[in-house]
Design a protein around this nucleic acid. Structure first.
Lengths: 207, 207
DNA sequence: ATTACAGTTTTCACTTGTTGCAGATTTGCA
DNA sequence: TGCAAATCTGCAACAAGTGAAAACTGTAAT
């Protein structure tokens, strides 16, 4: 019958292994030869499955790079939805950014979990960049909605969107600027924290 | 030889006519049957050219929807680059938004220039939405850079990005929210103006 | 163990976007 | 009119993605 949460049959383990193999194969190839230059046949071959099988794990070639998007977004949403009512909106958003960074650092499931490389890939390949912007956009909408609901008395939806927009806008730029000047992830996170402070100055003044 | 600006030979006129025909054919079909469901062969047929020729006018199927992107971006850049030094950053950004709206309303070149329909198409079709976000992102980068340069003494690049992010973030949301509730373009523009005010409150308080 | 069933993978065929190339066609101009 | 450059077309080829049927493999019940 159905397993409720800890499906640990051979079947399930095999599926996870294949998924991982596909991700690692894809990322390794993208890194070596670039996204456009890598073919689905090659990715599949590297994971020892048929080309067709790739599509029962990922809906498209880009999707494989964003394998953890869903969890990331859930994290953001959950932090915003059950916000401590005592905390100011600005402080809450800061906590969201920090939790998000902490979560990234904590992910080590994959051999290939080199966050910096993935980031560089996304910033480099137009197709991946477009996909990242879509993900970010959805996150932004979710966050603005949640923030507005958490502080319905103080923040209109438009105001919440402005705050979130400021935050994401400055963080995006901080990441890009830093990556271009070849800094380590740690240095980048520092800049992101400063960008956050600046971005939220406006929100604080609304109080 | 080279014509400097007013190329009005038969050749050039014919090219413009074909370009227009392609845009109209594409938008009409996208509207009728959806973006994915429309084939390049159909678009080309509707404009009386071969499928191959489509690609000497547009680099991809999506591109045809964003035929005026370049001019739009030039408008934004030019407004920011030669800013009146007496104007505050917030007022300058407001002017940018208003000029942009005015420009949109003034475009009537195409039979099919139904701005609302194009907007709805972009918001509806994932592929087009992704493309739009890319365009918007580039504009945001350009604007932040230009704003920072125009007010180098007062605004760091991060601060400029935050301001632009707030502006774009709230405007995006205003557009979406309004379009979903089926309002006219005029009503949407009103909301955008209010969103602009809210978004820039933070920037004003920085002064 | 055997077997029937459901979930997975593979194979195959097909559509569509996109590109390179070579051979027409058309246009601008002397 | 006639040549050179710009355009357009048809064709072949490749990669992403999809649908459907056949082959394979855990799972669980007898």
């Amino acid at each position: 019958m159905q397993y409720s949460s800890g499906m640990v049959g051979l079947r399930e383990r095999k599926k996870q292994r294949t998924r991982r193999a596909l991700i690692e194969s894809a990322l390794r190839l993208f890194d070596e030869k670039g996204f456009e230059e890598t073919t689905l046949a090659e990715i599949a071959a590297g994971a020892d499955v048929s080309t067709r099988t790739f599509f029962s794990y990922f809906a498209s070639k880009e999707d494989v790079v964003f394998y953890d998007t869903h969890e990331r977004m859930e994290l953001v949403r959950s932090l915003l939805v059950r916000a401590d009512p005592g905390m100011s909106p600005a402080d809450l958003l800061i906590r969201v950014v920090e939790s998000s960074l902490a979560w990234s650092s904590a992910q080590e499931e994959l051999t290939f979990e080199d966050a910096e490389l993935r980031l560089r890939l996304i910033l480099t390949e137009p197709t991946l960049q477009a996909r990242a912007l879509t993900v970010l956009f959805d996150t932004q909408l979710t966050a603005a909605q949640a923030l507005h609901e958490a502080y319905a008395d103080e923040l209109s939806l438009i105001e919440a969107s402005a705050a979130v927009g400021a935050l994401f806008g400055s963080v995006k730029l901080a990441v890009i600027a830093n990556l271009e000047s070849n800094r380590s992830l740690e240095q980048i996170w520092d800049t992101v924290r400063r960008a956050t402070d600046v971005a939220l100055a406006g929100l604080r003044s609304l109080g």
